[in-house]
Every structure is written in C-alpha cells, then in structure tokens.
Design a protein around this nucleic acid. Structure first.
Length: 571
RNA sequence: CGGGGUGUAGCGCAGCCUGGUAGCGCACUUGCUUUGGGAGCAAGGUGUCGGGGGUUCGAAUCCCUCCACCCCGACCA
C-alpha cells in the first residue's frame, strides 16, 4: 500500500475523553473514531488490525473443528423468555420493538439462538459433537462504557457453542477450545494467562478466562510462584491458616475510640498492627442479617460470599437493619454480646483462627481488645473463605505463594452443561433410543477488545508497537526526498516491489512529507519494522533498518534489505 | 440511578464572572522557501458558540428547560 492512496488519519492530540494509552493511541493513530458513548467506527487502519485478529481466530477455530455460522444480532424476545433471561438480563440488554410492536433485543450473546438451531437441526447422537461459532457484533448496554474499545457497548465477539451427547464429550470439546484459545493468543503474540474463573451468571461447572497481562487491566489474577496455578481473584481460594488458634493471653477490655469507625483508625489509635483488628461487614440475605468478619487488612470477596448457603443473593444491610440486629451503629460492630437469634455470625477462616483480637463493641465510639472466640463470645456460626487473597498467601494447590497481577479478559470458556438445552427442550435421540438434552459449552473471544488489550501491553511514549501478527502493515518504507531524488525513489520502489513479491505487507510513504512527519506517523501507528532510504546512505549503497523496539538503526546494503527484513519477521 | 463537570472551527483550548455580535495553537487551502525527527514566511477558508425558550435595544456571556459527552460513586461499617 502506498501512503498516498491510503487513509492515514493520525492526530497530534488525542480527544479529551481518552484516558488509557490504548484508547488515546487508537484515536490518534486513526484506527477508530467515536460515534457515541461506547460506540466506535473502525477506520481503514483499524480494520487491517481487526482482520488480522479475525483471521487467526478463524483459522484456529476451524482447525479445532468448529464450524462458522452467522446468527442475527436482532433476536425475538420469545426465545429469551424460554430460558428466563429476558427478565434476568435486565438493563444490560438493549430491547427493540418492530412496527408491529413485537419485542426484540440486540443480542448480547447467542445461547438461545444456537440452542434453537440445535433443537431443530440436530436429531441424533450420530451428528454429535458439533461446535458452531460466529464472529458477530454484540451489544451490551454497560453501566459505564469506558476505556474505548476495552469496555464498549457495541463490540465484535467470536462466540462458539458446542453440543455433545454426554458430559465426557462436552469436557473434551471444552478442552479442545481451551487449547485453541492458547493457540490463538500465542499466535497473536500476546502475553497472557489462562486462569480459573467464576462462571458467573452464565452458569455451568468449569470455566477459564484468558487474561492479557497489563497494568491497566480491570481484573486481578492470583498466580503461584511455584506452580502453574492461576485464578481470577474472584475465585482464588484463601486457605485456612496452617497454625491452630493460639490460646487467649489477654483479658477482654472495652475502651473508648471516639470518632474512630475504621480498623485503620483503631489500629493507629491503639498502636496495634492492622492484622490484629477484625472488621464487621453486615449483609442481608434470606430475611436475615449476617455479620461477616474479615481481618482488618483483608477485603471481602463478594463472589465467594454469595456462594455460601445463607448468603445467596445478599445485599448490603441498611442502617436500620444493622441497628436492630446489633444495637450499635456501623463502624463499631463486632461479635461480642450479639443476640444470635437475630443475627448469623460468619467468620473468615483467618478470623476464626485469631485470638486476642480487636473489634467493635456494638456501641458507638467503643471498641474492645483481647477478644477470644469461645471465651468472650460463642464460636462463629459459619467459618468460610470469604476474603480476597493477598500477595504472599499460600497457593491453594499447596505449591508456592500467591502473587497478584492485573489482566484484561479477552477470552472465556464455559462448560455449560444442560442449562439451556433443558430450558429450551433441545434434545437428541441417544444411542439407547431415549431423548436426552445436549451437553453444551460456550466459548467467547472479545475480538475488538483484543486490539485494545494488545496496545495496552505493547506501546511506548511514541505510540503503538504491534506484535508482527497483528500489525496493520509489517514494514514501513520511508524514503527521504522521494519527490526530489530519482535514486531514492528508485530504491524505495524497488524495495516495495520486492517486499510485495515476497508477500510482505509494506506501507510505502510516498507522501511529500517531511522526514519527521513520516517517522512520527510510523511510530504512532506502530508498524513494527521500518526501512529508511536517504540519499546520504545511498551514496554508499546503504539504507537503514530499525525495529520499533530497537534503540538505533542498523545500516544495511540496499541490495540486501529485502532479504534482511524478511529474516527479521516473525515466522 | 446518585453526585460533579464539560459542551465555542476537524482536534486541543481561551473568551462567559463584569452582555456590545468570536479568538488562539494545531490541522486545512494557495504560493514561495525548506527537507535525516511533527518546518518558515505570506495570503486564505472554516463556526446554527449543543438544542429550544426567556430577559434585554443587544446574549457565547444572564435565567429556565431539554440533550449529549466525561469523571467519581453506587460496597468494606
């Protein structure tokens, strides 16, 4: 491609709303433009990247035996009502009416429609397993779209759905997709981690997320420094302390802590370590108030808590509920002196193993220290893992210690089971002649999000640095004085033709621009390899090669550049 | 949904408080010069000042209203 024939929409300044590097650079590099909140147009430069990603995704999906289809993004409400998700999905789903007042949605995902296809088309176990996938635009009316393409409302997603005759088959399909995802993200040249995940609203047993590692990621991942254990912090288990609870050593003592309603405050006031304090978090679930106790320096894991028996569907308790159940206001609560008929005490494993700890006195402006389970208050009603892991915690697999990194979720695989097939009566004739519901799996990849994530992971102060497989152009040919020097022009044209003949995608900057402009554009847009051709070097038959990550250019004989560049490309 | 903020040229912004009919930088057009890191000079084009209503002789500026966008929050007691 010649730059003069292309649409190079680079900007010197990024529009104000852009916060993250990837968002700014995509706008500045002319990959995308914003249409409205969470809505983006993709310009030619962005399309080239998007196509690269899509191609790799397709190739690996096909290789794994999945079959491409396309389902309508606009879907009738009836299907969604069959599974109950018309109500469940809530305001995230964009609902539309047609001229006859029939209800539709713009699909946020497509389990219902594929399951409908399966129930109509797949009749016998002989036709299984089947895996259908599509690359389609989805719409989710996010509470707060942000970070450009990383959390947009409209986005492109590859979604795949497998149908198997039994659970073993489904797990095999799941494994194939897992492997395909590893292949995809590896080929894209991204640093990523598959991590055990919570399966969330979609439901099902096994679930893994594929996380691109980046400091700006919205997710936190816990991983072991001594094994391959990795899990989303939402799911990562905090083991019970190895050491048994120590015997009480202090008497219990109530003291005033005026105006000090946080663990940090009390620890400071009494000059005690934060790790000796216990905070009480009041939740309401199943018509009952629950006091969840977490060590002062830990934080509540809302997902894990929600999985406990009595805490399904919890919400934060109101001030009135707290006062009624504890006789004290928020900020001064603890397990001592509670009427257990009115409240359930849930202690985190760590807290259950503490002795001589500090907590609220259930009285405004008072805390107590030297508190001990069994002696000063009854043992907790429930002991469970309800906190987020912290760096240094032992790994749940018993090997090594946990560390935390941030990641951007770009893929997610779910072993779904029969949730949708049963709800929609999607069955097939099994070998024994009975009708059985399909065992399903579903597998998503955020295609547009990958582009943003790749930039978050690969950029510097000058711009994007594409991994070769995603680059809009592989090589940038920059002639200095293209319109003045015949020698430069001839050399540039020759190189460009040679690269094209070798199947290398080059961008020949034939614009009559100053060198600084051409170089800055190449760097902004992130073309990974560049060759600068100038009269000065040409006198000695030399040109300059420089990779986007190289600190300096390498002089290469003109006659050898094409071969030299090809050698440097990722295989 | 709650709180805060912003809407002025393609982008970044000033002007608004204290009303007098719009400006700066970049970008764009033309010409000349320049050409190894986002050029210089000269000339030029560009705005329903987010929409509607009101006050006023006169509104980008004051008032009302609607809209869009952005940020924070929606929880750690």
């Amino acid at each position: 491609m010649r730059a003069s024939q292309f649409f190079l929409a680079t900007l010197k300044e990024a529009p104000q709303e852009a916060e993250l590097p990837s968002h700014k650079l995509m706008l500045r590099g002319g990959l995308i433009r914003k249409l409205g909140s969470g809505l983006y147009s993709w310009l030619p430069m962005g399309m080239r990247v998007l196509h690269k990603v899509e191609r790799i995704v397709r190739e690996e999906m096909d290789r794994a035996g999945a079959l491409e289809i396309i389902m309508p993004p606009v879907q009738p409400a009836e299907l969604w009502q069959e599974t109950g998700r018309w109500e469940l999905y809530g305001p995230m789903m964009l609902r539309i009416k047609d001229r006859a007042e029939r209800e539709f949605c713009y699909a946020p995902t497509a389990e219902e429609v594929v399951t409908d296809i399966a129930r109509k088309e797949l009749r016998s176990y002989r036709q299984l397993p089947v895996n259908f996938y599509q690359i389609q635009t989805k719409f989710r009316d996010e509470i707060r779209p942000r970070f450009g393409v990383l959390r947009a409302r409209e986005f492109s997603m590859k979604d795949a759905y497998s149908f198997d005759a039994d659970e073993a088959g489904m797990l095999e399909s799941y494994r194939k997709m897992f492997d395909a995802y590893v292949a995809i993200f590896t080929r894209l040249g991204l640093t990523f981690r598959p991590v055990a995940a919570d399966s969330g609203e979609i439901g099902g047993s096994a679930s893994h997320e594929f996380q691109v590692l980046a400091d700006s990621g919205e997710d936190q991942i816990a991983y072991s420094d001594a094994s391959d254990y990795a899990a989303n912090i939402e799911k990562a288990e905090a083991l019970a302390p190895a050491a048994p609870r120590a015997a009480p050593a202090e008497p219990m003592r109530k003291d005033p802590t005026p105006g000090t309603s946080t663990c940090e405050g009390v620890a400071k006031l009494w000059n005690e370590p934060l790790a000796r304090t216990v905070k009480a978090i009041l939740l309401y679930a199943n018509h009952r108030v629950h006091m969840v106790l977490i060590r002062g320096d830990h934080s509540l894991n809302e997902i894990k808590s929600g999985k406990l028996h009595g805490l399904k569907g919890w919400r934060w308790a109101s001030d009135e509920e707290i006062l009624a159940a504890c006789d004290g206001p928020a900020g001064y609560l603890g397990p001592v002196g509670l009427d257990r008929a009115k409240i359930t005490v849930v202690a985190d494993r760590t807290v259950a193993a503490m002795s001589d700890f500090i907590c609220g006195a259930n009285e405004k402006d008072f805390h107590i220290r030297g508190v001990n389970w069994g002696r000063d208050c009854p043992e907790p009603d429930v002991v469970a893992d309800v906190r987020n892991v912290v760096p240094g915690d032992p790994s749940p697999d018993g090997k090594g210690r946990l560390a935390l990194v941030r990641g951007i979720e770009v893929g997610h695989v779910f072993a779904l089971g029969r949730r949708y097939s049963e709800a929609m009566g999607a069955t097939f004739a099994a070998e024994d002649g009975t009708q059985k519901p399909f065992e399903m799996g579903c597998y998503g990849i955020g295609v547009t999000r990958i582009v943003g994530a790749a930039i978050e992971q690969n950029h510097d102060d000058k711009g994007i640095i594409w991994p070769d497989p995603m680059a809009p152009f592989t090589v940038s040919v920059i002639p200095l004085g293209f319109h003045k020097s015949e020698a430069v022009k001839a050399a540039a044209e020759k190189l460009y033709a040679d690269l094209a003949a070798a199947g290398v995608e080059a961008l020949l900057d034939d614009r009559n621009e100053r060198p600084g402009v051409m170089l800055a554009d190449q760097e902004l847009v992130g073309i990974p390899h560049r060759v600068v051709i100038g009269e000065r070097g040409l006198k000695d038959g030399m040109v300059e090669y420089q990779h986007r990550r190289d600190a300096e250019a390498t002089r290469v004989p003109l006659a050898e550049v094409a071969a030299f560049v090809r050698q440097r490309l990722a295989p």
